[in-house]
């Protein structure tokens, strides 16, 4: 496995002796994820999300750089709000910070923290990173068009039996399977 290691490698010398543990049983992880989602429903009356947080950040930055431009755009306006509250003091922004912390804790406990690039054997690191950026851009665009990403739509809306979210979910898998053939070199 090629990996552009080095940066994180140094401080890892101690725990490097440990092999990364295998991922947990998918069904147990699923139940755990479902219970977290349920907790969000019961306590907050809302589901989980991810892409809303970057949207808030972008809206704030655009608003700082070009306030007039942002004011003429309903998309940014929605995230900036009416100015009474700080747009970054937002539930999703804090939730996403938690996601990073939670991922790090879980990864540390299982010795899975490692600076590397996940990719198939037949693709260069540079190519993989380029693809990651392109994929991320498409995902960001698509998520905004669909009013939510896999967390906000598929997971949350799926559990709520929301019509649009189920249509969305099938579209995601449809799009994925359609495109899979063309990008097989990257993964297989």
């Amino acid at each position: 496995m090629t990996s552009i290691s080095g940066i994180l490698e140094k401080e890892k010398t101690e725990i490097k002796v440990y092999e990364p543990k295998p991922y947990s049983n998918p069904y147990l992880a699923g139940v755990g994820l479902g219970l977290v989602l349920l907790a969000a429903f019961l306590i907050m009356g809302r589901g989980l999300g991810a892409s809303g947080a970057p949207s808030s950040v972008i809206a704030v930055v655009v608003n700082k750089v070009a306030p007039d431009h942002a004011a003429n755009n309903n998309f940014y306006k929605e995230y900036i709000g009416d100015g009474t509250a700080n747009p970054l003091k937002d539930w999703l922004v804090f939730e996403v910070i938690g996601v990073a912390i939670g991922g790090f804790i879980s990864g540390s406990l299982a010795h899975r923290i490692k600076g590397k690039v996940e990719k198939g054997p037949n693709v260069s690191v540079k190519m993989r990173l380029t693809y990651a950026f392109i994929g991320g851009s498409l995902m960001g665009f698509g998520a905004k068009l669909a009013r939510g990403c896999t967390s906000g739509q598929a997971l949350t809306g799926g559990a709520m039996l929301n019509l649009g979210s189920w249509a969305f979910m099938f579209a995601v898998f449809g799009g994925g399977y359609l495109a899979a053939y063309f990008f097989r070199r990257q993964w297989l």
Binding site: G107, G135, G176
Partner: peptide, 30 residues
């Protein structure tokens, strides 16, 4: 339409928004 774009992005990029955060937090450069 958004779902289709997102699905294509999923295959190209390998993540969805939430999972990319976890991946980044565990040190993955991609």
């Amino acid at each position: 339409v958004g779902g289709l774009i997102l699905g294509i992005g999923f295959v190209i990029g390998g993540y969805c928004p939430g999972t990319s955060i976890v991946s980044a937090a565990t040190g993955r450069y991609d």
